[in-house]
Every structure is written in structure tokens, then in C-alpha cells.
Design a protein around this nucleic acid. Structure first.
Length: 877
RNA sequence: GGGCGCUUAGCUCAGUUGGUUCAGAGCACUUGGUUUACACCCAAGGGGUCGGGGGUUCGAAUCCCUCAGCGCCCACCA
């Protein structure tokens, strides 16, 4: 049956999608129009569409489609991110399954696999975006490892290096022993875990006295180079200047004093391992302590590990605890909950590790970005609350570690040469590097073989932070017309979880490389959760299959479902029933079209008065609604904009307007009216099209034969016009009267087929009488001021009372009385409160006149209503 | 520990500068419906002391204080 099922078959969707693509409706080239640009947050190249993407990209598509219709040169640039650590981890996993170890491969061999993988899985996600209806300019699709994109990244590195902003440092960083790379602070998750805190006795070097330290990581004692106490701690003051022997290692290390140690925590005595703890490292620097690294990159013990060499860190922890127990040095072992640093990608415990890395100085670079968001407001964050988050991070910004010990990515353009390769040059290619090295060394005999490129690659975000510029080739060719036309872009839609990773850094790079913001507005979506509030994840299996959703409900319905649940910035609880709601809505619109389509034009007919009035009302209402929709868009309240349109179409258009203008049985309608209704229908489709582009385009072509260039996607967005508020208000009253009639019918069990003769206490605007008659099943309405006949029963709406001959209605007198009394009591109470307010001088003298007048009007209205009720009551008695 | 935010109907959430329209919407629910566009529907209806307490004000969901619960971000004490 369901004709609407054509909208979930994907056939219609495919038809229109290829129509749009074929006719280049998504394409953009610089021209005389104003640009409206969005660059997509590039998803991981090997990723699969999830709910977050769907939400995010639906929003972008709504914005871009509306802008396109508004006459902007709309350009939505799609692309994917090479996602170095995530992709490399996936490739390593895949190889492992095939029995290949990464360590057995050369860099070139590994990269060959990685590219093969990318070719195989890359782009899947872009196809999925197409299913969703995303109107990206696909000809502009970029990949962060494309040649030009890579060249841009290298150019930026060299430029920053030449400006003195990039340096090499020996730093303690978060080390991922599984991926064997450093990871940034932002890629570390903290998880509260049950672990143990151990109290270990260290013997003094010159006596039998023992000092007890507390630690969660006993295995690191192999790298201890000091013991630290608080200078104010009297318990240990006699140990000043002495030294202890580390258990097992029997190394003699000094006792140092520092305020850093908390007297009340543990034993008040801290073991210091400068090579394996961030804070200990600071102490080490301060007191010039020896640094002893005990781990290999993979988390096993290195040559400093004594008899534990080659064993895993967690195995060694257990063994050391046992050894200490045997030696009687383990004083206590207690349960302890603490936060453990976990790698976001590989989920292994992070190891703080000292290593040589490349850094970008951030403090000065951040200044214009801070200004643009906090002072000049050139960039607006929506919702505004994220300004605080942004501010805090930017004002405390740390230098950015941009090197990663991976292969998949942009290899750092640094070339080492000379003795032990201790000198280096920074250059865009090995050839240039050689020239420079020759210049520097004044040794013309240097050859390519004497140069070795840095093994590391750049952090993924070091390519995406220039994304809004590089996609328009603005790094390599700063003067090209494309970048000058499209940049700065208008809106960026992304998740708040990457505000530091990406958003902040794009702002920084924008000012550094273009002297201009990258975008004007950043719309932060929420995180998609299931209806129980849990984050959607693969492990929980609570994430619906995006493609399946589209196939089940249709892309339009899924888009609506997502939009109905999404307010900016707050997390949204996604419930599949919302897609059903979207599907029902599509069905409703489809059926409205079928109804309209069934009306046959009869040329001899004249326009019905009812229709002229209804059309006049509806046109005025449309302008009011468009105004409201625009208001919501201006505030990025996309779900409110959709809900406004949803109600406008379902209630005002279908339930009221179409019911009023619907011809009687014969289905004949005059030409003028049908054409005007068609125009109204078309306006509705326009409003709908950014949200539900497929059904809107389908009906657009069904309702009227169109040439290709007259496609809805290419048409104009409805403009706001002035409207007559009185017409809208008057019609609201008409609706109220009709509802009151329907209510009365239901209450008295009078079927719709029973025509009623109505008398009203005040004059009804004759303009609307026919509409009331049609919608309420009324035979006649007359004004009738003095009802004396007791055979009448009344009901009222507002201040109008209606009378109906009660001869054919069974009336439960007692029940009627009871109901009126309840209403009367309530009204009298209400009147009293209003009168009390009005007699209070404090109120009348302090409140604005407008408010006082309003209260007076309220008083009059209630008095009138009370008199009506009393009259009705007396008639019953 | 520091910061930000949230708490309004069964559910998910709106509610701008305190004052017609402020106590709302959608969904869910209840009742009625063979009104030939649609049961993926139509018509009507019932739901809330706006987290608790206090204060400012003629007037508070809205501003201030306080308590409770929840969420997020940052820092992470061995």
C-alpha cells in the first residue's frame, strides 16, 4: 500500500540526488554573488558514518541549502582526514591479523599497505553522506594527504620554523607504549581505577633506620634518584642531608626537601623518579637529579631493569612487590582509587616518557585568536558558553608537541647530517636540504646519502588546523582568486569535543597565515547519546546503524528525527521513534499533495468567498511564520525552525487551511483558487527543502512541470513581507469558535452530520460566518441578544455566548449546573484577585501603565464572563 | 581541587530585557471517530507549587543567596 513508501525505498532519493549532481547544483565557482562557505570537519578517511556525523552534516546541509536558496554562492567543501594515529592503529591491527608485524616492515612497505587500506575503505563515509542528502561540492573533495595539501603542511612547518616558532625539545610527554608514539594531552583519557598504594621501606645509607614512602608504581623504584620530604615536616627533620639506599637496586640517593610534598598524604615522603613522572621530572630539573630511564618504548624494562630486563611493566610491578615482601620491605599495601591516564586510541595506560620532540611555540600565535573571540567578537561561538572553555585553554596554552613517532602522515621536513647526524636543516625536499647543508658545511662533497630525514610525522591536527585555507589552496598560492573569494568561511559546525584540537587551532592558523579569521560562526552540536543518556559506542552496541536507519525511514525522516532532538551545545538523546515521527510527517505532506492533486479545475466556476478569505489569511500567516523561521535561523535554533515549519504545515496548512478550502464532493475548484493554493504549497515546499530535500524536490516537480534549472534546490528562499496582524488574530478567533462548537458536539454526543442552528450573543464578523458553518457543521448563525426561550442551551468561547435549540438534545440539568458552578467559582476567585491587585496603591503607582491597563481589561472580561455564566445558570434552574 | 552549565508535564526540551500573549511545544497518554488526502490519520481532552529553602520587588520560572542532585571541561597529590 503505502504510497509514501516510495520515500523510504531510496529510489526517489537516488533519483533526485543524481539529478542534483548531474546538473552541478552543488558546484560552486567564484562569481559576483556573495559567497557562503562551509568546510566540512573532515571525517577519518577510513571511518564509518555514525550518529555524530549524521547530526553534524545534516546541520551543515540545512545551512548550505538555505544559503543557496537565499542567493548566496553556496560552497560546501567535503573531504577526509588521514587521522594518522587512528588509521595507523587500524592498519597495524589488520596486518597483525594477516600475521605481519609492523616492526618487520620498512617505512615504504608499511605505507604501501596503508595506502591500499585507504583506497579500499576511504571514501565510504563520503558515499554515506551522499545517502543522507549532503549537498557538498564533490569536485572539491580533499584529503589531508593529497599532494597539494601535504605541500601546504610542509610549507607551514618551514615558515613557522623560519619564524623561530618551531623548536626541538627534550620533554616528558605522554607515551603510548602500544602505538609507540607520543600523544597529546588532549588524546589522554583519565579513568578512575581500583589500584593499590604500597608503603615501601628505604634504608638509610649510614644507619639501620628506615624511611617509608608511599607509591602506586613500585616498579619505578628502579629509576629513583632521590627521596623528597617537606621541609616543614618535623618527623623527618633529622634526616636532612642524609641519603638512602634504594631497595633491590641498592643505589645511594639523596634526601631532598621541597614544598611540593604534601605532609598529610601517604607517609609524607615521596620517591622521586624523574624519568617516569611529570612532577618528579620537575623536581629532577630543580635539584639537578640524575635521570634514569628504565623502560623500552614498548613498556618493557630496558638495561636499567636489572634482573627484570625485557619484562612488561605490569608484570614487573607484581614481581617487585613480591621481592619487596620477601625482603620485608613492603610495610603496607592498601586499596586505592585513582585516575589512570589512558590512551584514547589504543586504551593502554600512558607512560610518561622523556623524548626528543618538535614543538610549536603557541603563546604569541594565540593572541589574535583570543582577541577575535573575546574582544572583537569577529568570531561567534554558539552556544556562547563555550567561550569560557575556549578562553581558559587559550590563556593557558602550552607549546604544541607536533611530532608523532608514526609513519602514516606528513613526514617532518627536517634533514640531519654531519657527525652522528647531529646537525640539521629544514627544507621542503631532500634536494634542497642537500644544497643548504652544503652551504652550511661548505663541504661540496656532501651527498644525498649523508642526509637522513626525521623519522617522525606531524600530528594529524597540524594538517587540519590549516584546512579552511588549504582546501582553497591558500597556503601555496596565497593570492589565488579562490581563497580570496571563499575565505573567511561563514559557519563551522562541529562537536565541542574538538574545540581545542581543531577549532582553536584553526582560528590561530587563520590569523597567522591569512591575517583573517577562518570563519564567522562556530556552531557546536551536542554529543549524540542514546535515550538512556549513554554515549553511543561500539562496545555498548547502542549506536544505530546509520545506513540502516536511512534505509528504514528514509533520509528525510532521519534528518527530521535528528533535528527534532538537537539543541545546540547540549547533548541530545537520540530515540529512533523520532525518525518515525519524521516519516509520518513525510507521509502527511505526501497525502496533502494527493488531496490537492485530486481537485479538478472547472473553468466556469468563480472563486468561492470562503477561499478568498482563507487564502488571504494563510498568506498573512505565512509571512509571520517565515519571520519566525528566520529568527530561529539567526539564532542557530535549527530544531525550533523545523518545529515551526512542522506545525505550520501539519496544523495550519493541512488541518485548517486545506480543510477550509477543500471542495465538496464533486472535487471541482476554480482555476484561480487552485493556482493560489499551488503557490502556497510551493512556499511550504521551499521552507521544507533544507530539512527534507528529497520529498520537497519530488513534490516540487509533481505539482508543476519544471525545467531542470527550475529545480527546488535552485529556487528562492521565501522572503519575509509585511503582514496584517488583525487578519491573523481574527482567524484565531474563528478557530476558537469552531473548536468550541466541536467541543460542544462531543460533550453532547452530537454527530457531525447533525447540522446545528446557532445563535450568538454578539455579532460575528460576517466575513467568517461561512467558514464557521463549513467547519462546524452549522446550518445558520444569527445574532440573538435576548434569549428567553428555555429550550435553548448555551456554550461560550471568550466573551461570545452561543445558543442552540435544545429540543433535540438530551440535557443532564444537574450536570450542566455543576459544571457552570465550578467555572463560576473559579471566575469569581480570579476576579477577586484582580480587584485586590487593582486596589493596591503600591501596584497601581509602581507598575507601568500598560500593565495596570491590562489588569483593568482582565477585570472587565471576567465580569462579563461571570454575567454570562450567571445567566446560563439561571436558565437551568 | 578549579571552572562552566543544568534541574520546568510521563519523556525530550523551549521560555529573549522580571509584567498582555507565561506556565509552553513535540512525543507519549485518555476519550470519541467508516467525515472517500492521510489510522503513518481526524477531533477533543487531562497532565506541572518551574529541584528545596530564603531574599530583592507592587510583581520572580526569570535577579541575588543558600542547600541538594546531575552533567561537562580543566588540573591531577605520589
Amino acid at each position: 500500500m503505502p504510497i509514501s513508501s516510495k520515500f523510504i525505498s531510496n529510489k526517489v532519493e537516488k533519483k533526485w540526488y543524481s539529478f542534483w549532481v548531474k546538473n552541478n547544483f552543488f558546484d560552486s565557482k567564484p562569481d559576483s554573488r556573495d559567497p557562503y562557505t562551509i568546510v566540512i570537519p573532515p571525517p577519518n578517511v577510513t571511518g564509518v558514518l555514525h550518529m555524530g556525523h549524521m547530526l553534524n552534516n545534516t546541520l551543515q546541509d540545512i545551512l548550505i541549502r538555505r544559503a543557496r536558496m537565499k542567493g548566496y554562492n553556496a560552497c560546501w567543501v567535503p573531504g577526509t582526514d588521514h587521522a594518522s594515529i587512528a588509521t595507523e592503529a587500524k592498519v597495524v591491527e589488520k596486518l597483525k591479523k594477516d600475521g605481519i608485524k609492523k616492526s618487520d616492515l620498512s617505512r615504504e612497505e608499511f605505507l604501501k599497505y596503508a595506502w591500499k587500506w585507504t583506497a579500499e575503505y576511504g571514501g565510504i563515509i563520503l558515499d554515506q553522506l551522499k545517502m543522507l542528502g549532503c549537498s557538498c561540492d564533490w569536485k572539491r573533495t580533499k584529503f589531508t594527504l593529497d599532494d597539494k595539501m601535504s605541500d601546504s603542511v610542509i610549507k607551514v612547518f618551514i615558515d613557522l620554523y623560519n619564524k623561530g616558532l618551531i623548536y626541538r625539545g627534550y620533554r616528558m610527554l605522554n607515551w603510548d607504549p602500544k602505538a609507540q608514539t607520543t600523544i597529546s594531552e588532549e588524546e589522554v583519557l583519565y579513568e578512575e581505577r581500583d589500584s593499590k598504594i604500597y608503603h615501601i621501606a628505604y634504608k638509610m645509607s649510614d644507619s639501620e633506620e628506615k624511611i617509608v614512602v608511599a607509591t602506586t608504581r613500585p616498579e619505578t623504584l628502579l629509576g629513583d634518584t632521590a627521596i623528597c620530604i617537606n621541609p616543614k615536616d618535623k618527623r623527618y627533620s633529622h634526616l636532612t642531608g642524609k641519603s638512602v639506599l634504594i631497595p633491590i637496586v641498592e643505589r645511594k640517593v639523596p634526601i631532598i626537601k621541597d614544598d611540593y610534598v604534601d605532609i598529610d598524604f601517604g607517609t609524607g615522603c615521596l620517591k622521586v623518579t624523574p624519568a617516569h613522572d611529570f612532577n618528579d621530572n620537575i623536581l629532577g630539573e630543580k635539584y639537578n637529579l640524575e635521570i634514569i630511564d628504565i623502560f623500552n618504548p614498548d613498556g618493557t624494562l630496558n638495561q636499567n631493569g636489572l634482573h627484570y630486563v625485557g619484562q612488561d611493566r605490569f608484570v614487573v610491578r607484581k614481581k617487585i612487590v613480591n621481592e619487596l615482601k620477601e625482603k620485608g620491605l613492603l610495610i603496607k599495601e592498601e586499596k586505592y582509587k585513582h585516575n589512570v591516564a589512558i590512551s584514547e586510541r589504543t586504551k593502554v595506560v600512558i607512560e610518561p616518557r622523556l623524548s626528543k620532540q618538535w614543538f610549536l611555540k603557541m603563546e604569541d600565535l594565540a593572541k589574535p585568536a583570543i582577541n577575535s573571540v573575546l574582544k572583537s567578537h569577529d568570531i561567534k561561538l554558539v552556544p556562547e558558553k563555550f567561550v569560557n572553555t575556549f578562553k581558559h585553554w587559550m590563556e593557558n596554552i602550552k607549546d604544541w608537541n607536533i611530532s608523532r613517532q608514526l609513519w602514516w602522515g606528513h613526514q617532518i621536513p627536517v634533514y640531519y647530517y654531519g657527525k652522528d647526524f647531529s646537525n640539521y636543516v629544514v627544507a621542503s625536499s631532500k634536494e634542497i636540504a642537500l644544497e643548504e647543508a652544503i652551504k652550511k658545511t661548505k663541504n661540496p662533497k656532501l651527498s644525498m646519502d649523508d642526509l637522513e630525514q626525521d623519522n617522525d610525522v606531524l600530528d594529524t591536527w597540524f594538517s587540519s588546523w590549516i584546512w579552511p585555507i588549504s582546501v582553497f589552496d591558500g597556503i601555496l598560492n596565497p593570492d589565488n582568486p579562490e581563497i580570496n573569494y571563499y575565505y573567511p568561511t561563514q559557519d563551522l559546525v562541529t562537536g565541542p569535543d574538538i574545540i581545542f584540537f581543531w577549532v582553536s587551532r584553526m582560528i590561530i592558523s587563520g590569523y597567522e597565515f591569512r591575517k583573517e579569521k577562518p570563519f564567522s560562526n562556530v556552531y557546536f552540536t551536542g554529543i549524540v547519546r542514546d535515550k538512556m543518556g549513554r554515549k553511543m559506542s561500539k562496545q555498548l552496541g547502542n549506536s544505530p546503524d546509520a545506513v540502516k536507519l536511512i534505509k528504514t525511514y528514509g533520509a528525510d525522516a532521519v534528518r527530521v528525527g535528528l533535528m527534532l532532538s538537537s539543541n545546540a551545545g547540549n547533548d541530545l538523546l537520540f530515540d529512533e521513534t523520532l525518525c518515525k515521527q519524521g516519516k509520518n510527517f513525510a507521509n502527511k505532506i505526501w497525502n496533502a499533495y494527493r488531496l490537492f492533486d485530486g481537485w479538478k479545475i472547472e473553468k466556469s466556476l468563480k472563486s468561492d468567498e470562503i477561499n478568498i478569505i482563507a487564502i488571504d489569511w494563510f498568506k498573512n500567516l505565512s509571512y509571520k511564520i517565515i519571520e519566525k523561521v528566520e529568527y530561529h535561523f539567526a539564532k542557530y535554533r535549527i530544531s525550533d525552525a523545523l518545529m515551526t515549519i512542522y506545525k505550520f504545515i501539519w496544523e495550519e496548512f493541512c488541518s485548517w487551511f486545506l480543510e477550509v478550502v477543500k471542495p465538496n464532493q464533486n472535487n471541482l475548484i476554480d482555476e484561480k483558487t487552485k493556482n493560489e493554493i499551488k503557490e502556497i504549497f510551493e512556499t511550504n515546499l521551499k521552507l521544507l527543502s533544507p530539512f527534507m530535500p528529497f520529498i520537497a524536490e519530488e513534490l516540487w516537480h509533481l505539482i508543476s512541470k519544471r525545467e531542470t534549472d527550475q529545480a527546488l534546490i535552485n529556487s528562492s528562499w521565501p522572503e519575509v513581507d509585511s503582514y496584517d496582524k488583525k487578519i491573523i488574530d481574527d482567524f484565531e478567533l474563528v478557530k476558537k469558535i469552531i473548536v468550541a462548537i466541536r467541543n460542544f458536539r462531543k460533550e453532547k454526543s452530537i454527530g457531525f452530520k447533525q447540522k446545528l442552528k446557532l445563535k450568538s450573543s454578539s455579532k460575528i464578523n460576517p466575513k467568517y460566518i461561512e467558514i464557521i458553518k463549513k467547519m462546524g457543521g452549522i446550518e445558520s448563525i444569527e445574532e440573538y441578544k435576548h434569549i428567553k426561550n428555555e429550550n435553548y442551551i448555551s456554550f461560550h468561547t471568550g466573551n461570545i455566548e452561543f445558543f442552540i435549540s435544545s429540543s433535540f438534545i438530551k440535557i443532564d440539568q444537574e450536570n450542566e449546573k455543576k459544571k457552570i458552578k465550578i467555572e463560576l467559582d473559579y471566575s469569581i476567585g480570579f476576579l477577586n484577585s484582580v480587584e485586590k491587585k487593582l486596589s493596591d496603591k503600591k501596584f497601581t503607582s509602581n507598575a507601568p501603565k500598560k500593565v495596570v491597563d491590562m489588569e483593568k481589561k482582565k477585570k472587565n472580561d471576567i465580569e462579563l464572563k461571570i454575567s454570562l455564566l450567571k445567566k446560563a445558570l439561571s436558565k437551568l434552574a
